[in-house]
Design a protein around this nucleic acid. Structure first.
Lengths: 337, 337
DNA sequence: CTGAAAGCGCTTACAG
DNA sequence: CTGAAAGCGCTTACAG
């Protein structure tokens, strides 16, 4: 008699179907051929008992967790939702559970381990700034499957990367400001120190200037950190310093919002006097006044592709060292169009 | 000799510390008193071996998953990030893993089960619109721990709820429009059919009108679904229909953005001719033009409190049937202030 | 305070 | 195509 107060196990299914638990396991996992009659009865028993395999038992026995982890510094920003959406979708498609862990910054490394460390996860997606280099090296040396997002691996280790095409996207944007809007003194507002996206965007900025014979002027490069407040202050500072400019390429969209505010506060008209552009093309970008010209970064796709890469690593299949997802110029009104 | 190519197990720790695995388990879980010397040696062995317990083994043996699930219709919207942040923070504090699953709508129920069903999770956080009533009843009858977000339980079942104080928040907002800005014909733009937040906001809207002796005019209630596009169309329709109004309370902030656009497109000045207000006070609200007056909903706190409630349910401790988190009027410029 | 042993519910060689 | 049995790595009575 099957006690009804207990959730059914594979035993109950086997008994009801009149087969061994081995056979039940086989039909559930399609891991070996099973006769049609037996298969039929198993399926029916599963149905009738409302049987769902315990993940813990399966994992312990199979030595796979069918779980991947996502490590990030924090939850928030316009980036986060689309990124997670892409990851969740792809993980579900691959039959993987997803565990999220915020580290609050790239502190040394271990506290996340107890939850999503080497044994409790088949692989890890690591967003830039969430794990220190030493820990990345340690995991990499263990041959533990890893994919980095928006970050290149620390020197000496080889870990697949998925990120966006920052340089080319920026280059096209700056060229648009130069060619279509005849801007000559374009400010580049940097992201946080050490941020790779920002570094590549700066390279694109310089490349565009060079292509069009414009000098690189250090005074036109301002420090920032992808945040609204600091962007506001940076623009104020430029004005205080008497720096002359006719356009601002802000490190990302959040910063662009601060830039717009600072210019408005200073009585400068956008885009007439100062053209403004951002990067990422976040969901709120078109809500700004004027609607922000930006470079679209396919964030959701980043998430999706990253999972695919990680799955390859987990299966020990060959996998690209670096994937750069294409960006696209999105023209709105803040550039003068 | 401990093979270095294998990750250590509790066996390895026990051997190295010269104790039984029972003792190791005890010091790791503080589940029973252990002598200081033994305890010391275990801790050291754990350290030296870099030992991390396999979650799967622990779960199988203990019959607890130490995991909670979050079910929602989809990932996105200004709501999502703060909600998840609150949930993740609280879950981490409680030592719980968090599994996220999107259902794509309140379809009957079962597909999520294989991942976060009754056995693979200690309890579930259910966001409105993600699980059908039948499935909620089934889980509830199983005494499976459940907490609903922004949704009351289906008739006949008793499941704890965490949501925001919609009615009072709306009431204060409408009264502000009436009293401070002398608005008399205030449009209420509804959320999706059956949405409980929207229903409560409508009650608050009516209550405010009544308090101030204003008639409820059905023609001032417009259908919407918390989306920008439909809000835009709804306003267009009102104008086409020749409905006279001097304020619009849009169901939420997203819709408010569409409202602002539609009014601007129609050449109506906000807030002079039409005052506008939203609900939620999402992160982008202050970026709108003019900055949106809204009702702040403490979304992150919702997530945090919901986890705490769920933990109580899991521990079979008494737990409130309903928690209404207070909202707060946030005055910006779109109301006329 | 400590340990031997059973058991959690599966998967997977191995043998047929 | 099928099953008995070992084993995954822990926790938890039970006995001392």
């Amino acid at each position: 008699m099957t006690p009804t107060n207990r959730t059914p196990t594979i035993q109950d299914v086997a008994q009801r179907a009149g087969v061994s638990i081995t056979t039940v396991s086989r039909v559930l996992n399609s891991s070996a051929p099973v006769g049609p009659a037996a298969s039929q009865r198993v399926l029916q028993a599963v149905q009738e008992l409302n049987f769902v395999p315990r993940a813990a038992a399966r994992r312990l026995a199979s030595q796979r967790s069918d779980t991947i982890g996502l490590l990030l510094p924090e939850i928030g920003g316009p980036f986060f939702s689309p990124l997670l959406r892409g990851i969740e979708t792809a993980a579900k498609e691959c039959g993987l559970d997803l565990l999220i862990h915020t580290t609050g910054g790239a502190e040394a490394g271990a506290p996340y381990r107890s939850r999503l460390g080497e044994h409790n996860t088949d692989g890890l997606l690591v967003f830039t700034g969430s794990v220190g280099d030493d820990e990345l090296r340690r995991l990499s040396q263990l041959r533990f499957p890893l994919v980095l997002l928006h970050q290149t691996p620390p020197p000496g280790s080889r870990i697949p990367v998925v990120t966006v095409e920052n340089k080319l996207g920026t280059q096209k944007l700056i060229e648009h400001l130069i060619v279509a809007h005849r801007r000559r003194r374009i400010v580049f507002l940097q992201g946080p120190d050490g941020n790779e996206d920002s570094a590549w965007r700066e390279r694109g900025y310089r490349a565009a200037l060079q292509t069009h014979g414009l000098p690189f002027r250090p005074e036109l490069v301002a420090h920032g950190d992808f945040a609204e407040r600091t962007a506001y202050q940076a623009v104020q500072q430029l004005l205080l310093d008497g720096v002359v400019f006719d356009a601002i390429f802000s490190g990302d969209d959040e910063a662009a919002s601060g830039v717009l505010k600072a210019l408005r506060a200073a009585g400068l008209r956008v885009p007439d006097q100062v053209a403004v552009a951002g990067f990422d093309d976040g969901p709120f970008t078109r809500l700004l006044t004027p609607p922000l010209t930006s470079v679209h970064a396919p964030i959701e796709q980043i998430g999706r592709v990253a999972v695919q890469q990680l799955v390859k690593c987990i299966r020990r299949q060959p996998c690209e060292d670096e994937i750069l997802l294409p960006t696209e110029l999105v023209i709105r009104q803040s550039c003068g169009c």
